[in-house]
Design a binder for these strands. Structure first.
Lengths: 366, 366
DNA sequence: AATATTGATGCAAACGATTGCAGAACTGGC
DNA sequence: GCCAGTTCTGCAATCGTTTGCATCAATATT
């Protein structure tokens, strides 16, 4: 079907071995034949068969990226970054979707090593530690975004403590004293770390931690909705909410919209991780950027480093942290001490507050 | 490193050929040895090497999906569907991102066939027709979402004329007479087809087509913004806008928010293709669903059919259309004849109008 | 000019599976 | 118990590369 090395060799009247050496540039051929063969190969449209080569060399020039899903914007940019980087190095990216599911992750992992991938970047579920550890003997592996505590794999993490700290401090600096936090499950690293960053910022500012202001829940929009409702229904509701669980953002936004709460006038809102539409939203939503782009780049760096035969041994460093960054847009507002305790929820008594708000918003056509 | 067929054969004291036959189940082995070998293979943890197998059989159990990007929600669900389907059949999906770029598409395509993929589902840029056509001799190919006119490849398309028709008719049925359309470039199939669906619906309803109501532009949010502004600035602005260009949605929404236009009270808004946050948005945004899920499924069906050696020849059908569906949410409203010409733009006199507000300001809870 | 040295080439064996062909082991019929 | 017929098994070639080793030519060394 396609042109093989043998064809090239025949056309050039040399043996396959010479042809191979000339084309792979192992340097054991004369300058002249090398050039002649490259020319002939090009003319014939020869393309080496990676399967055959792989069989012999044990390499595939395939690098896999295993993520939970593609809905998460962070994973999207990571995938794009990884793809671009690898492509430049003549590797093909194998993008796999594991759905944060232990079984599926396990299956995918075996398929991948079967296919003799040259490297793997994985967002681990944390439930296949043993398997991952075993695979690490065969293939260079780098963990991304999450750590699998059952392994000692090199891991590239977002600096969640810092990110949460940054965000919380920003809100404090704007004058907020009661800051609600919606955060992920506390049995995950990111869930715990974000909470800790929040707590640290409060402590530094001398603000007493109020447990009723913290809602920890699953990675679903629904969490955001219930969390948000819970916070707003408090006797003394927060003047700012920090949604530090990416998946919860939609739910929180919905509740805010349902209750006609004006952002940032009635409530400041800060979210974690960017979404493409955040800056198109009105008001544009301020975020803590976890640095997805940097994370992906670093992961690729580390992987390539490990794939480099020479540096097979580890460097001692087991964990890398990529700094988070505050992106200020329009959803957080400076607040005066007096209004800190103002309740954004319309009480029956002062019935006009909500109506006034919305009509003020579009006074044109009453 | 890993267990090979030879190891299994040795352990069972048979030849490799017998082992191979027993394990692949070619039926030429005795029941007894077959069972014995499967047992031993399992005990030893034997996993066939797809590379070696591929070299011999010319198959890789790899199927590639080549899309433009991962930002587009449709591509996300397609990727997930394809992945799930293929996985069930023991194929590994190779997800590639081509960026709607001719060069990148071309490169990726060659890499893919080099890797001897067993099949390919591609959203073509339309600029590598010749190459695609040539590749089709080596690999079963199905085009998705877009057609490449330079080829006669089997293609699974969304029914854009019908979708646009459906959406427009819906707005007409709600009483709208002046319906703005923001649509994609007219040198793309989808751009043309959506316009034609729109036109047909108007014609059927006996509404004269007004060219000033149609804005065709590039696949970018900016298009949505300028288009939306243009429409709203008209002397007789539309009472409904149909954003039939997925990428333009964000831009349109922003302009609407900036101008404090209340959806659906001041303006009905209908979009094309779903985004995960549309139903969380307030008001939830009505859409024409292009059926991404069905498209992906059908594409897989067709591909599998072609990959089936028996049915190598084509079936004559070159083009499949997947029906679109109207998903009514809260962004379109019935309109009275009188209000059709009302201008939603606030006059300068109301100076405070630009105060930020979330797009959800409807005085529901007064 | 003969030999040592270097550099370029070819032969053939891998890599791990599949598969045509031929031989071995069974089966049953006489 | 022998032979035809059937079923099972093994040998060896093959897929398209890479690579150790031997060979051979050309150059350098004396």
């Amino acid at each position: 079907m396609s042109v093989t090395l043998k064809d090239v060799a025949q056309a050039a009247r040399v043996s396959v071995s010479t042809a191979s050496r000339a084309l792979t540039g192992t340097g054991l051929t004369s300058e002249r034949t090398q050039q002649r063969l490259t020319r002939i190969a090009r003319e014939l449209g020869y393309r080496p068969n990676p399967i055959a080569r792989g069989l012999k060399t044990g390499q595939s020039r395939l690098v896999a990226l295993l993520v939970h899903n593609l809905t998460n914007a962070s994973f999207q940019v990571m995938a794009e970054v990884v793809q671009a980087r690898l492509k430049a190095l003549n590797y093909q990216m194998l993008l796999c979707i594991g759905g944060d599911d232990a079984q599926q992750e396990s299956d995918t992992l075996t398929t991948l090593v079967d296919h003799r991938i040259d490297g793997l970047i994985v967002v681990p579920t944390g439930k296949n530690g043993a398997q991952l550890k075993a695979l690490a003997n065969d293939v260079p592996i780098v963990c991304l975004v999450r750590r699998d505590d059952a392994t000692d794999l090199e891991t590239v993490l977002a600096d969640d403590p810092q990110g949460a700290y940054l965000g919380t401090r920003h809100l404090i600096e704007l004058g907020h004293k009661r800051i609600g936090l919606i955060v992920g499950r506390q049995d995950t690293t990111s869930g715990r770390e974000r909470l800790s960053g929040y707590v640290r910022a409060l402590r530094e500012a001398g603000i007493a931690k109020d447990d009723t202001l913290v809602h920890a829940g699953h990675f679903e929009p629904e969490t955001g909705a219930t969390g948000c409702r819970k916070l707003l229904d408090l006797a003394r509701p927060p003047s700012a909410i920090f949604v530090a669980n990416h998946e919860a953002t939609l739910g929180a936004l919905r509740v805010i919209a349902e209750r006609n709460i004006a952002i940032p006038d009635d409530l400041s809102l800060l979210c974690y991780e960017d979404m493409p539409w955040f800056e198109w939203h009105r008001p544009a939503i301020s975020i803590v950027d976890n640095g997805a782009r940097d994370l992906a780049n670093l992961a690729v760096d580390r992987l390539l480093h490990r794939m480099d035969a020479k540096s097979n041994g580890n460097d001692g460093v087991r964990e890398y942290r990529v700094g988070a960054r505050l992106v200020q847009r329009d959803s957080c507002r400076r607040i005066e001490a007096a209004s800190a305790a103002r309740t954004p929820r319309p009480k029956p008594s002062k019935s006009k507050s909500s109506a006034a708000k919305s009509s003020a918003a579009k006074p044109a056509k009453v």
